[in-house]
Design a protein around this nucleic acid. Sequence first.
DNA 1: AAGTACTTCAACCGCGGAGTG
DNA 2: CCACTCCGCGGTTGAAGTACT
Length: 316
Amino acid sequence: MMMDLRRGPWTVEEDLTLINYIANHGEGRWNSLARCAGLKRTGKSCRLRWLNYLRPDVRRGNITLEEQLLILELHSRWGNRWSKIAQHLPGRTDNEIKNYWRTRVQKHAKQLKCDVNSKQFKDTMRYLWMPRLVERIQAAATNTTTANVTAAATSHDHRGQFNNFNNTTTTTNNNNMINNLPSNIIISNNDFGGTYTPENSSTAASSDSFGAQVSPVSDLTEQYYTTNNSTIPVNNINNPTPTTTNPLDHQILIGGAYYNPSMSSNTSTYENYSFNTEGLIDDNYHNFQASMEQNSQYWLEGVDNLWNVEDMWFLQ
DNA sequence: AAGTACTTCAACCGCGGAGTG
DNA sequence: CCACTCCGCGGTTGAAGTACT
């Protein structure tokens, strides 16, 4: 029989009912859960409400710089695989990341009058946006060790009204946030001289943890060896020539600059690149900057209304 | 102050895959 | 196999909030 099902925003009472039911019976089997709990909602709706909102470990508040960096990085690898990306951002939901991408990233692309998938926009992200994010993360980490991130409840947040769970202020040390980056994104202030140790890299790619900077991060970094100070594509250990075509497969971040072999000329071998001790800058990066200057009028016009106040660091 | 445009994000929808009988 | 149900994912919508004129 088809009982009348509710739709639209959830009420406090419905939230309470769902929370209490799951506290007593656990989650899963959503259709029967909805029925047994007496909720006039579809199982789907209950699942969504729980996973995206009521779940105790859902992380609220603004997307941090580190999370932004991660989203850009992971999206460049996996595209719109939101749930997969979300797995690497503890407490964030696929919905939230998807919303972030659509409202922020796609907006910027639109304002630049280019497609998010275009090379132009990807280069902008890779050579300007992401390095700048890294710089800001570094700056934040060195400027203060007491900076806190507070997860603020929104006006839609019912949870604080009826229980104590998840109402603690989330306080995160910036150094810890940096440690939470995946190990193939290394923030480093020095040169390319990280010591490669095979035993560190090994095949033990079993952990999804972001904490260990000396071990590969599962499927993200199968092709990487990671050291304390640098991340080196496996291809480059004994063979200087990249063997895959995905530019990001070979992207290395050292000294706050992205090194991306495949951004270079047709003869993209690693020998083409020069490293320095301040940061690793390749010829392409210079070329890109040069072309940016050449097109400064275009870019500045675009950039002028491209970034909101929060993003004004971009211009400096 | 009021009207309008824009932004955000919670929630919905359709689809495809997995499981089951 | 086939039919059916359930679940999870990605795309989309629209209400509420905010900014702008």
